[in-house]
Simulated assay, not measured.
Amino acid sequence: MLVRQYSKPLAGVVVATALFAGSSVASAATIAHWEFSEGSGQTAASVGDPGSLYKMTLGASGSTASDPIWTIGRAGAGGALKFVNEKTNSEGDRDFLINHTGVVPTSNVNGLQLTNFTVEAWINLSSLSSGFSNEDPYTIMHLTGKSGATSRTNFALRANGNKLEGFYSDTGGTTRVITHTLADLKADEWMHVAFGRDSTTNQSKLWINGIERVSTETNDPISGLSDLKFAIGADITSSGARRRSFDGLIDDVRISDQLLTTGELLIPEPASLGLLGLSMLMLPRRRK
């Protein structure tokens, strides 16, 4: 059984540890967490981020062009954003969120460049993608930058048909794609998805609704990228070009600085744990 322990906040940092019988203490930090609770406006803030390091802008400007739509999220979770893939969008544009480029420097996204990480979100697909093109597959999130003059991916998560895929560029520039083969994505249904990597154990993991698929990849994600760009709901290049936008709802996007366990993901505890499990989920985690 997973037991979370929380220490007293120090200078705005809340530490969370996960204890298992016979195990040592492990801790993880939430780097950024977008709950999309604003309900309106042109920006989405990361929870517990008073300096607005990870504020995101809807679309490309202050207009409504390329904006996802504020909407109601899954039951009991507040708001969400609706993205429409460009092939079905009557406006003919790509809906996306991008790291804020106004009062917040784009250099702040450097904090998302990690070799150990877990990225996760709740999604509700309006359709399933088909093949590879400028529209397909559907991107959930993507962090990219330049290695020399070449665009490389630090991490990305996408819906490729009914398959969940996580991928990254390794230190040699090769794209490493991990596919979830133990569960399928479905349209018109809320599903929790996650992708994580641990460079010490060489483990990469994908989850769909808590169903875990483990892969051993000996090549670490590339680091030291410049001109970083981060997008939710679209694939993005280091030059800022977008494609392969999501089609459906995205909620509760979180990035952590370690490979999490299944019990640490943003998934409700089983009903059998009752009020204890629910109350533990409401406690905060350590934040950077």
Rank of each mutant, 00 (worst) to 15 (best):
G92N: 09
G92A: 09
G92V: 11
D93I: 01
D93H: 09
D93C: 09
R94W: 07
R94T: 15
R94A: 09
D95T: 05
D95A: 10
D95W: 06
F96R: 13
L97N: 08
I98Q: 12
I98V: 13
N99K: 12
N99F: 02
H100Y: 13
H100E: 12
T101A: 15
G102T: 10
V103Y: 02
V104P: 08
V104L: 07
V104G: 09
V104Q: 15
P105D: 11
P105W: 01
T106K: 04
N108T: 13
N108E: 06
N108W: 11
L112M: 14
L112H: 03
Q113E: 15
L114W: 13
L114I: 07
T115L: 14
N116C: 09
T118N: 05
T118F: 06
T118C: 04
V119E: 04
V119M: 14
E120I: 00
A121I: 02
I123F: 07
I123L: 06
I123V: 14
N124A: 13
N124T: 00
L125R: 10
L125F: 11
L125P: 01
S126M: 04
S127M: 06
S127W: 00
L128D: 09
L128V: 08
S129K: 10
S129P: 00
G131H: 05
G131W: 03
G131K: 06
G131V: 01
F132S: 13
S133N: 06
N134K: 10
N134Q: 06
E135P: 00
P137C: 06
P137E: 07
P137I: 00
Y138I: 07
Y138R: 07
Y138A: 02
Y138W: 12
Y138P: 01
Y138V: 08
M141V: 13
H142P: 11
L143R: 03
L143H: 03
L143D: 03
L143I: 02
T144Q: 06
T144C: 09
T144W: 00
G145Y: 05
G145C: 08
G145Q: 11
S147A: 12
S147R: 04
A149T: 15
A149D: 13
T150A: 03
S151D: 15
T153C: 01
T153P: 01
N154V: 07
N154W: 09
N154A: 06
A156W: 05
A156K: 04
L157G: 03
L157P: 05
R158C: 06
R158G: 05
R158W: 01
R158Y: 05
A159E: 05
N160K: 11
N160T: 04
N160D: 13
